[in-house]
């Protein structure tokens, strides 16, 4: 039994975090100068040669042959920096193409020769990460399919200005993968990014509470503030551990994989939301402006939880699962 990153995984996660810190600083997303399409393109051009889209794909199609735990660790770090959703869409599209037996197409997503936008049955007719995309990945309750991307009209102004989005219309399905496995993988990659968002909310609040002074003291010395941040830390750690558990359960095909994965997603959504709200509050009036990352943590959280399906739906599915294996 080992439910923590090993030395190699920690090294990779740290390296990814360092790259993102310099290449994807939060101020890149501050309005009003934001050109989201240019930002997405730049970060996709960074992610592709780094091999991030093929982290858990086999070497035969150009992947790094990591497993689901490696992939989750990567997406936690991507989530922390509000990285483009095209990475999620592309990585999943490669898994889907591979599962459907189209190795050439799978390899194309990893090299960036094909690029995927993302939509789910929760948001029909609207896709995300559409800038530069060639394909559309459609996630449904028990199926993932790929088609060519067909723009369906004018671009839509998104709530989350850090993702390009567009109306799309249906096109012929190129391939589809039925069954829960890939859909649960999508759920876990979303959960991982939500964990990253929860972590960022916690870290932003923690740094601010050390620096900001009122009544002659850092606000982090006031229990009302520090106890809130302690709770933010607890949420981030709960979700982190649950993602590890779910990743192993899903990778190994354990009978409770669905329960573990949906639990990770439910908790991650709540943790990201709570931490985003509290982070805005902890930053006082600044937190309520666009001059701070707070609003984007909140908006990305709402986007991801909306894509993954609502909390009530998740709870009903968890209720329908058999108890965890003890």
């Amino acid at each position: 039994m080992l439910l923590a990153p090993d030395e190699g995984q920690t090294e990779i996660a740290t390296a990814v975090a360092d790259i993102l810190l310099s290449e994807a600083p939060f101020d890149r997303l501050y309005l009003p100068d934001l050109d989201i399409i240019a930002d997405e393109q730049r970060l996709m051009d960074l992610a592709i040669p780094m091999g991030w889209l093929g982290m858990a794909a086999p070497e035969s199609i150009g992947g790094s042959a990591g497993d689901l735990t490696d992939e989750c660790l990567l997406f936690m770090k991507l989530g922390e920096r509000i990285a483009p959703l095209g990475i999620t869409a592309g990585a999943l599209a490669a898994h889907a193409a591979l599962a459907a037996g189209d190795e050439a197409l799978a390899a194309a997503f990893i090299t960036g020769d094909a690029r995927a936008a993302l939509t789910t049955s929760a948001r029909p007719g609207r896709a995300f990460a559409t800038a530069g995309a060639t394909h559309l990945l459609v996630v449904e309750e028990n199926r993932i399919s790929l088609s060519l991307l067909v723009a369906g009209g004018d671009d839509i102004v998104a709530l989350d200005a850090s993702s390009s989005t567009a109306a799309v219309s249906s096109a012929d399905t190129l391939l589809q993968v039925d069954g829960p496995e890939l859909v649960l993988r999508f759920a876990l990659l979303v959960a991982s990014q939500l964990q990253g968002l929860a972590q960022t909310g916690r870290s932003e609040s923690n740094e601010y509470a050390k620096a900001r002074e009122q009544f002659g003291r850092p606000i982090g010395s006031f229990q009302a503030v520090r106890h809130r941040i302690a709770d933010m830390e607890l949420r981030a750690r709960q979700v982190e551990a649950q993602i590890y558990f779910a990743a192993v359960a899903l990778r190994d095909g354990r009978a409770d994989a669905e329960l573990q994965t949906l639990s990770a997603l439910l908790l991650a959504g709540d943790a990201a939301m709570a931490n985003a709200e509290i982070n805005i509050h902890n930053h006082g009036a600044i937190g309520t402006t666009t001059e701070n990352i707070g609003h984007l943590l909140l908006k990305r959280t709402i986007l991801l939880t909306g894509l993954a399906g609502g909390a009530n739906q998740l709870k009903d599915r968890i209720a329908a699962c058999a108890p965890a294996i003890m």
């Binding site: 039994m1 080992l2 439910l3 923590a4 750690r237 709960q238 979700v239 982190e240 551990a241 649950q242 590890y244 558990f245 329960l259 573990q260 949906l262 639990s263 990770a264 439910l266 908790l267 009530n312 998740l314 709870k315 009903d316 968890i318 209720a319 699962c321 108890p323 965890a324």
Partner: peptide
């Protein structure tokens, strides 16, 4: 009622995962 219990099931999964995760780190 059912969703309250489902949420608790998810939380307990995380409590167990945290327990395993901490012990893994100490064992290491």
């Amino acid at each position: 009622c059912r969703r309250t219990l489902a949420r608790l099931r998810a939380d307990l999964a995380a409590l167990r995962a945290m327990n395993y995760s901490n012990l893994s780190r100490y064992a290491g």
